[in-house]
């Protein structure tokens, strides 16, 4: 697995996803994570239902992930109760999202924190009140566990600038 070195590094990882056909290869990445590790998956792009559907289709062990679903609320979809999911209702604030992440990191105690995605964090900027820069710095302080952030191709320069500004060392992995 060519990205193994990125997972074993101490640095925060920024994965840059191509805009086209990003699903299949990224699901393979999640599958590899689920074989040996657990992750808190903060979703600003997919509902819990969507992730569960994809995981089942691709033989990914769902209970290796705890999912914070921020999407069902904005779409006004009824969020069913699941033991490995919490719903973060929007509109809400970034400090509250940070609190929810902190809470679930303590309860679930995963190996990784996976944030999908920074590009959507920017798209939600008007309903998620708060500064992206402060949020990333605060998330960094929550845990010393590996943090993996996703962003869309084209947005990576912006986020690299924000990480650098906050003195957060990152590896950048361009997903093929």
């Amino acid at each position: 697995m060519r990205y193994a070195k990125y997972l074993s590094s101490d640095k925060t990882l920024l994965i840059v996803l191509p805009r086209q056909k990003q699903d299949m290869s990224f699901l393979q990445f999640l599958k590899n994570i689920s074989e040996h590790h657990t992750a808190l998956y903060v979703s600003l792009s997919k509902t819990y239902g969507s992730l569960a559907e994809k995981f089942i289709k691709n033989n990914i062990v769902l209970n290796k992930f705890f999912i914070i679903d921020s999407i069902s609320g904005i779409l006004k979809l009824p969020g069913k109760e699941h033991k490995n999911c919490s719903y973060f209702a929007l509109p809400n604030t970034l400090p509250n999202l940070k609190k929810e992440i902190e809470k679930q990191m303590k309860i679930f105690s995963p190996d990784y924190l996976l944030f999908d995605s920074l590009s959507n964090l920017i798209s939600f900027r008007e309903i998620l009140k708060g500064e992206c820069s402060d949020f990333l710095l605060n998330i960094k302080k929550i845990t010393n566990k590996k943090q993996i952030f996703l962003c869309n191709q084209g947005d990576e320069k912006t986020f690299k600038y924000i990480f650098d500004k906050n003195k957060i060392n990152i590896d950048v992995l361009h997903w093929q």
């Binding site: 792009s45 997919k46 509902t47 999407i71 779409l75």
Partner: peptide
């Protein structure tokens, strides 16, 4: 939209 939902949703 770029938001991803299940078939049922």
């Amino acid at each position: 939209t770029a938001l991803d939902v299940s078939e049922f949703e």
